[in-house]
Computed example of a mutant assay.
Amino acid sequence: MKPPSKSENKAAKGCKVLLVEDHPMFREHLGNLINRELGMSVCGEADNIRDAMRLIHETSPDIAIVDITLRGSSGLELIKDIKAQKLELNVLVLSMHDEELYAERALRAGAKGYITKNEASTEVVRAIRSVLQGDVYASRRMTAKLLERLTRKRVAPDLAGMETLADRELEVFQMLGRGSSTREIAQSLGLGESTVETYRARIKEKLRLRSAAELYLRAGQWVRDQGA
Rank of each mutant, 00 (worst) to 15 (best):
A219E: 14
E28M: 04
R210S: 13
L107Y: 13
T151M: 10
L19P: 06
R218S: 13
S211H: 09
V42G: 10
S188F: 02
S5W: 04
L76P: 05
G110K: 07
V155H: 15
R129K: 15
G179W: 04
M53A: 00
M175I: 01
M175V: 00
T69S: 09
I79L: 06
M175P: 01
Q221R: 14
G192C: 02
E88F: 08
R36D: 05
G161C: 08
I63Q: 05
W222M: 11
M96P: 00
K13N: 06
I82L: 13
A12T: 06
C43Y: 05
E119F: 10
T198Y: 05
L92S: 08
H23I: 02
Q221T: 12
N32W: 02
A201E: 03
D22N: 13
L176E: 02
K86E: 14
I185C: 11
G134W: 09
G161V: 04
R200A: 01
E197M: 09
V125L: 15
R141C: 01
I79E: 07
T151K: 07
A106R: 14
L89N: 10
C15Y: 09
L147F: 04
L30F: 08
R208S: 15
L165I: 03
G161Y: 00
L18H: 05
I56A: 01
A228F: 00
N32H: 02
D225S: 10
L159W: 14
R218A: 15
A138R: 13
L209C: 04
K6V: 10
I65K: 11
H97M: 10
T59V: 07
Q133C: 04
F26E: 12
I34D: 04
E99M: 09
H97E: 08
M1E: 04
I49H: 00
G39F: 03
M96V: 09
R126S: 15
E119H: 12
A103L: 08
G31P: 05
V196I: 14
K145G: 00
S180M: 15
C43A: 09
L147Q: 03
A201S: 05
R126T: 14
S188P: 03
Y102F: 14
K206D: 04
T122S: 05
E104G: 12
I68E: 06
R183W: 06
K112V: 01
E77A: 07
A219D: 12
E169Q: 14
A201W: 00
E163K: 15
A111E: 06
E214K: 12
I128P: 09
S139Q: 07
R183F: 09
A103H: 02
L70A: 11
G220R: 13
I63M: 04
R140C: 00
D51T: 11
S41C: 05
L176W: 01
I68F: 02
Q174H: 03
M40H: 09
N32G: 03
E205S: 15
